[in-house]
Design a protein around this nucleic acid. Structure first.
Lengths: 255, 255
DNA sequence: CCTGTCCCTTTGTCCGACAAAGTTAGGGGC
DNA sequence: GCCCCTAACTTTGTCGGACAAAGGGACAGG
């Protein structure tokens, strides 16, 4: 028979962790608002009564977590965690877990269809203007796989943004980041890939403008199926996401 | 006319960042596999030729990113980033961006429906056994809102796991973490909430077992609509996610 | 075989220091 | 009076060394 729990586990955390937690609490509680200065390391040394090295370790934790950052003059301030930075970490996790392209494809089918549905319903004129601008730029670089892949990635970010649903925006991001490098490979390897991609985007913008949900869903499906067919010409869907994509994500994160 | 690019931009990053990047590269390249030891801080001091304080700052970065961790004896080793830890970061970001429950609801509707579709198609006997076990435990605590909310969260994690799609599993996690605390509030505030929740789970397991996609989707929708109706009895869907949920996520992260 | 002890390693923390880069204040030129 | 330039001052990034506490391992004794 197990003993009755007489003692709670005591909280034994290193000082740098406690520093990080204390600052994090103030930020998530809203007492420190995004943009507010945190103070210099020396200030924190005085406030917490620990050594500067300890403070600095705590700062690294918060920095990596995206809760604080340093401005141009390297002063600390609280900030709103950027989705893309966090998403790139998730992408990295997906790579390390060796997810397959089939999983990626299936999940993206769901997420992108949901995005377009939201966009069709709620896109603003400004959203549509951004998408139209993106389309124009895509048409200009239809012969340049790398640039076109970048435009494609941006297009789908803009569609998600137009859905006005930030949860969805965030949920699709990790998968989208893994998608992006393959798009370049596909457009390079499949001659008709570029024009088909741009045509799909044109239909999608049209669907959003006309608030035509059916058309939006249809063209999103086609767009993704095109990607899949292109992909199958150069690799197998059941292959795991290679480390090469990691490099992409890393480079993007540092930009 | 711009000059021909004679020089590459030089990489000016703090040493601790370079240390972190170097180790990260080795891990994502697979030269260091999950579980492999990284070596002691002193080893790294020797290898990188920088001060231990610098090494330690780099280690904090990697630790926070989930790429390395310390075992029971505090020795460093590479590890597979845990979805839930990263997802809690995203949840926190969503809170700080003040997303509304409407966004949460809409995104979850998409993600949970996709999960059940995958589960209906591909759940293994083991998945079903886990779900059945969860159901039994839920029935035992139907009168305890906190315990029931925890079971509910686990149930949906198990459904996502049964979908055999890790991308989906990860995509739904941030939203699900924000869902969880509200479930407790709803079950507390709405008398018939608990039994309805358990009944829905029973139907979902049944649908998975019979490979009945329609039923699975139907009951997932009902389940979420129940949540929504319950939620509207205690708050407005357009309210932003409050900081209170943050505390939940924080506590969960530290567990 | 279990246990207590000693020793070595490793981590967490601290102190003090210095160069480089950014900031601020004051002085000189117009 | 206003603007530019330079000289302090501040802050960050890094370094060297130091020490207590906790873990792990070897080893003797029950």
């Amino acid at each position: 028979m197990p003993l009755a729990p007489l003692f709670r586990p005591i909280d034994v955390a290193p000082a740098y962790q406690k520093v990080a937690d204390a600052i994090e609490r103030e930020i998530v509680n809203g007492r420190i608002k995004p943009g507010d200065p945190i103070g210099t390391e020396h200030d924190l040394v005085r406030q917490f009564g620990v050594n500067r090295s300890t403070i600095r370790e705590g700062i690294r934790v918060l920095e990596e977590g995206g809760l604080i950052s340093r401005d141009s003059s390297r002063r600390l301030h609280a900030c709103l965690p950027r989705y893309t930075k966090l998403a790139s970490r998730l992408s990295r996790a997906l790579v390390l877990h060796e997810v397959t392209f089939r999983e990626l494809y299936e999940a993206s089918m769901t997420l992108e269809v949901a995005s377009i549905e939201g966009a069709v319903e709620r896109a603003t004129d400004e959203n549509i203007a951004e998408l139209t601008d993106n389309l124009a730029r895509s048409e200009a670089v239809v012969g340049d796989p790398a640039a076109l892949a970048e435009c494609d990635a941006e297009f789908h970010v803009l569609v998600a943004k137009a859905s006005q649903n930030r949860v969805l925006q965030l949920a699709r991001e990790p998968a989208a980041q893994l998608f992006y490098p393959t798009t370049e490979m596909i457009v390079t390897g499949v001659a008709e890939g570029g024009p088909r991609l741009v045509a799909a985007h044109r239909h999608l913008i049209d669907a959003i403008r006309r608030r035509d949900r059916e058309a939006g869903v249809l063209w999103t499906r086609r767009h993704l199926q095109d990607w899949r067919r292109g992909f199958e010409k150069i690799a197998s869907l059941d292959r795991s996401v290679e480390h090469m994509y990691m490099e992409h994500a890393q480079a993007a994160r540092r930009r």
